[in-house]
Design a protein around this nucleic acid. Structure first.
Ligand SMILES: [Zn+2]
Ligand SMILES: [Zn+2]
Ligand SMILES: [Zn+2]
Ligand SMILES: [Zn+2]
Lengths: 163, 163
DNA sequence: CCAAAGATGTTACACTATAACCCTTTCTGT
DNA sequence: ACAGAAAGGGTTATAGTGTAACATCTTTGG
């Protein structure tokens, strides 16, 4: 049985954005973390699609949006905050950042990355976590965090390439 | 039942190096790939320990060893070759490279990374591969490659920190 | 030997990220 | 309200990682 994730299908992305921003405001409020206008703006830019964006792309868009010059530390500091709060993830294989759809609970970074369309989809699988923990334990290793990046073709791009 | 991997224990590392270089020569020979002196030297440098090394560290060591100036493309081209041949892996989370202990067969990059001592150990687990493939399949995703990086403490560093 | 392909040298540059310093805003306790 | 502390953000410069483009040298196969 297969179920194509939302981000791989056509969907009303405005709902993704609204949900992400609402969650972010709620969570930061609960935690006493300060979701400043700048940080919120960067989060919204990250959420413009499900494709991970690089820090310099975000910087350029910030500069365009605000008609002022924006230097790297500005965007990196915002990204650091968002990473700390678990509101975004970093995709190491792409040097890029993408919004987290379930920031309420901390979790490792597990992604399917379509090399054709660029969309990143987060996987949540207890089985996967278990398997990884089992393998670490078997080696006597104390696991602290982990990241999985799976590259390939999403259902859409796959059917295109089959044609 | 736990079994501490070799690289996390004291061991005769000369055997690791000899084995890696012998395998590399054999494989490249079989494949008609040219393991030139430079490439072999880079492979040997990568194998100086089980800790992933950055391209610029390797470049500096190359320069020191050969008493001539070495520019980035020199080491990156050698690394590209070694990656293509599956003789080394790239650790994305560290921007660093480490030798592969079983280059005979192509396989995904699955590592345990000790944040204290820096040692990287490759995991080979059919169960892990299966679980990852299952999760990809369930999303209708055509998997082409994957990389798992687990960060934590190796058995040694773990007991140090418990003390 | 010659031509073609492959490997390496060389220069310059692009992309990603952080250090250090300063000023402003916000919070905290009185 | 006030002073002092802490956090956020602007600015400049620089560190770290990786590639493009082109020249030169070496190996390979006829
Ligand atoms: Zn969406
Ligand atoms: Zn997430
Ligand atoms: Zn060893
Ligand atoms: Zn390997």
């Amino acid at each position: 049985m297969t179920h194509t994730p939302l981000a791989f299908r056509h969907h009303n992305h405005r709902l993704c954005v609204r949900g992400a921003l609402d969650s972010a405001r709620t969570l930061c409020n609960e935690r006493g973390a300060r979701l400043t206008p700048l940080r919120e703006q960067v989060l919204e830019l990250v959420w413009q699609s499900h494709k991970p964006l690089g820090a310099y792309q975000l910087m350029d868009q910030l500069a365009t949006a605000s008609t002022r010059r924006v230097a790297p530390p500005t965007v990196y500091r915002a990204l650091d905050f968002l990473l700390e709060q678990g509101l975004i993830h970093r995709i190491n294989g792409l040097n890029a950042y993408v919004g987290c759809p379930s920031p309420e609970h901390r979790h490792p970074s597990h992604f399917l990355l379509c090399r054709a369309c660029g969309v990143a989809v987060e996987i949540e699988s207890a089985q996967l976590n278990e398997t990884i923990m089992d393998n670490a334990r078997e080696a006597g290793f104390r696991l602290e965090s982990h990241s999985l990046e799976v590259t390939g073709l999403c259902p859409d791009c796959r059917s295109q390439s089959d044609a």
